[in-house]
Design a protein around this nucleic acid. Structure first.
Length: 219
DNA sequence: CAGATGATGTTCT
DNA sequence: GAACATCATCTGC
């Protein structure tokens, strides 16, 4: 199967400043809603608007950083604005954006994106290209491209060795850009997904009524 | 729709 | 050896 033609890259949304991330993880998680994550490779550029996040803090028993620095979690303890990517259940990769001051182990998990560009390439990476090309199922497939952290990393085409890469540099392959922030009235908070400790903490945030937040988890 | 399950590699005890 | 910030696919309503 030959790769789809790279789509033209939109740049107008990239003009606004990115939110300050050297803050507590829960605040960074709210600020990152509406921001855009883009990954550029030889195959083309793909990007999506962040619509679902989770905060993980050093003081938080559910966080990889709660027992101090390990080889894997080094980026969490570095400065804000870098990728922390880990392998989940042996199969998937999950993308986080580091936050907080240097020395503090904190990051925000990117759980879902609203696809913006490079959708055909995303579909190919997700193994959904045949269905994508048949226009009848377009909307349904589009909704599945980046829902869930494992799917986000797969659609973006990330690799484990990109953990630690900066995301606030204009020349970087993986970049955080800013579109429309999600105002507080359109923002929902809930318990985080898939953890066995600190289950009552409301550190999952998502945009209300957004189709790209997985349906079963919209509340 | 809900719930169960297997795939799979790394990290930490 | 257990646990794991998941997902697709299956079963049974």
């Amino acid at each position: 199967m030959s790769p789809p033609k790279p789509e033209p890259v939109q740049t107008s949304v990239a003009c606004m400043p990115v939110p300050r991330l050297s803050v507590h993880a829960a605040l960074a998680a709210k600020r990152l809603l509406g921001a855009i994550i883009e990954h550029r490779t030889h195959a083309g550029a793909v990007a999506g608007r962040i619509v679902e996040t989770e905060a993980y803090d050093q003081q938080d028993p559910a966080s990889h950083s709660c027992r101090g620095v390990t080889p894997r979690t080094v980026p969490m303890f570095g400065p804000a604005g870098h990728a922390y990517i880990y392998r989940s259940y042996g199969i998937h990769l999950c993308l986080n954006i580091t936050c907080g001051d240097e020395g503090v182990g904190a990051a925000v998990l990117v759980r879902a994106l609203e696809p913006l560009w490079g959708e055909a390439l995303m579909a190919q990476r997700r193994g959904l290209l045949p269905q994508w090309q048949s226009a009848a199922t377009h909307a349904r497939i589009r909704r599945r491209l980046c829902c869930g952290p494992g799917n986000v990393a797969q659609a973006l085409g990330l690799t484990i060795d990109q953990s630690g890469a900066p995301v606030l540099q204009a020349k970087g392959a993986l970049r955080l850009l800013v579109g429309m922030p999600v105002p507080a009235r359109a923002r929902m908070a809930s318990k985080r997904v898939g953890i066995s400790v600190a289950q009552d903490v409301l550190w999952r945030f998502f945009e209300r009524d957004n189709l790209f937040v997985s349906a079963s988890r919209r509340a």
